[in-house]
Write a protein that binds this DNA or RNA. Sequence first.
DNA 1: CTGAAAGCGCTTACAG
DNA 2: CTGAAAGCGCTTACAG
Lengths: 349, 349
Amino acid sequence: MPETAHRIARQDRNRYGNRPTMKDVAARAGVGLKTVSRVVNGEPGVTPDTERRVQEAIDALGFRRNDSARVLRKGRTASIGLVLEDLADPFYGPLSRAVEEVSRAHGSLLINGSSAEDPDREQELALALCARRVDGLLIIPAGDDHRYLEPEIRAGVATVFLDRPAGRIDADVVLSDNFGGARDGVAHLIAHGHRRIGFIGDMPRIHTAAERLRGYRAAMEDAGIPVEDAWMSLGVTDPERVRRAAEAMLSGPTPVTAVFAANNRVTVTVVRVLAEHTRRVALVGFDDFELADLLRPGVTVVAQDAAQLGRKAAERLFGQLDGTLDTPERIELPTRLIARGSGELPPAD
Amino acid sequence: MPETAHRIARQDRNRYGNRPTMKDVAARAGVGLKTVSRVVNGEPGVTPDTERRVQEAIDALGFRRNDSARVLRKGRTASIGLVLEDLADPFYGPLSRAVEEVSRAHGSLLINGSSAEDPDREQELALALCARRVDGLLIIPAGDDHRYLEPEIRAGVATVFLDRPAGRIDADVVLSDNFGGARDGVAHLIAHGHRRIGFIGDMPRIHTAAERLRGYRAAMEDAGIPVEDAWMSLGVTDPERVRRAAEAMLSGPTPVTAVFAANNRVTVTVVRVLAEHTRRVALVGFDDFELADLLRPGVTVVAQDAAQLGRKAAERLFGQLDGTLDTPERIELPTRLIARGSGELPPAD
DNA sequence: CTGAAAGCGCTTACAG
DNA sequence: CTGAAAGCGCTTACAG
């Protein structure tokens, strides 16, 4: 511990630990409350001498303006809320960060929370944020009914949905072209000679999962390939289930020769399963991930730009707050197929 | 768009868009303000009939309690702040999530922001959070002088530092055993026959970087190996610089036979560089990362538990708020060496 | 069981 | 250039 370090006694937590208020500053400086307010907020109309006296009192007392009180009077809290699925999921890191940067540029603070893919928890979080009177709400929905937000939106809370559309209300949404991306990815496998292609995805009640499955079906239909039930597996994406699903598809008399993994968690598990198999199985995954290019073979993916998703949505949110946007829109961002090897393997049989 | 979806007109944003208040509810229900407050907060002493009338008014008006106002009166905001380096860094995802879970268990909301490793931005963020009167502050420091927090801590803001100690103030800190972890990692390489071992790390003003370098030196000294300047490279960890540093160590008449990469970003870049080389070079990295086991060879790492770091720090923070903790403590969590292949390669010459 | 008054720490709208 | 009064939407402390 450096010698300059010293312990600092912490006050009682009652009433913000007896923090000095503008009133205290005013008394000490011998001026009125409004004059302190002017100095603190950099408003004009204070003589240099008065300003100096006030500033000295501020420093001596260690005054810091209470923004909670300010907010109560002004109406806007200069904060926005972001409800996502799981902060620990690498997909949401860059998204969160992008939202934060836009928020910061607009002088706003970001409050975020994870729904853990639980609709009740999403609602609880979103409404708690409304009670704090965030100016706007960015939601990656877990549930499929967002009518609970109607009173809030009507009361003025700007709202943008992200990654998946809102359920049963008409609201702005910014998402990736899940259908088109999946269709392209599967078509890529077909172009490399595959016909028995497996699809492993998330629970179908999740919009992105349903859209990607639709893209898979469309690509198969375009190629005139009838899809067998055994080739499709939808459900929770924990490693155990995905592993079982992959192994089922890869065994039996007519195993699949390629797999389309419908999100990053699924892809990673499938890569592990394939690493244990001797037969070469082609793989295309939805979502890019770090080090995908360093695996052998490199993993071919349909990439979406998470940061761009966050940025667009946040910009749209502040657009609403500026009053420049009226009609809810659906903004769809294109995906990009990145060929790295695993998606270009020919069928093994 | 489903047929049930319909557009919701958003009110003016002035004064929370004319949101109904308790006063409005009281008027509509024909009761006093305090009675509404009782119902909203589930306090006892209201007849079922009165409660029903109030509840009906609440539902009809779409009332939601304004927690900003509540906070002003009660003193605690039920929110904590987390200042980290970069939300997009995969190290902070699980840490953030762990903090969020503890916070949630204590009924608190989490506000977080990135300092981008900039001391000024760290201070700006931390003080903005104090102005919002967060109950506590969790800080992964970018700067090395935190005296700016003294008035805040004195005023009652609970504070815990994370990953790196505070500078020039005495405060709680929860961190990994960076020195010991690095020493073990380098000793592991030495045990596998290496003597010319490179070290690539972050800027030495960052505490973790300095500690890990110290661990490297200690291991080398323990083994009686004099360290050459050319083996050490410290600086920003962007891929370009790390790549140059790695290539410099790997060329020349007496190249290093092993590299110790002092954090996850460095490790990933070094893996890329080594993949382009034909000569086998051993590698141990500080920080675990996804898929490290799937690379060929698997990457040997010194793992720290980011989630545990976040959890411990958050628990400590709420301990302070409960008033059960007084003296600042330094909590050091052990690291774990995970051998996967790259760290067990023998020297190439 | 119920409610009127005062106050949390600021800003707004005025008046001097 | 300066400041007293009222009010933001709640809770507290009290009285009936």
